[in-house]
Amino acid sequence: MDSVTPFIVLSSILFTIGAIGVLTRRNAIVVFMCVELMLNACNLALVAFAHQYGNLDGQIAAFFVMVVAAAEVVVGLAIIMTIFRTRRSASVDDASLLKY
């Protein structure tokens, strides 16, 4: 088993679970956590491929993903806070006025 395939498969599974979580959970914060899960799954794949090919570029990419994730979390959570402040709710289904 001298391969990183199990890591990649694990990464896919985590990514899928995160996606399903985004689709099914209604709490905006939990949805956000699921997005983080998906990002981490991607990171795992990147690091695994870096290991596979003996190249640090994958690790650098994972590093950038983390930075972007941090920025995204900061802004996203601020948005959630703002919505919560006005609507008294953190449910993504409550913010559904923009429709047909």
């Binding site: 689709l23 289904d93 559904s96 006025l97 429709k99 047909y100």
Partner: peptide, 17 residues
Amino acid sequence: TRRAQNGYVRSYALSVL
């Protein structure tokens, strides 16, 4: 088709998926 625009962000996410 506008029925698809139900305002729920999770529905849109589903179509992205």
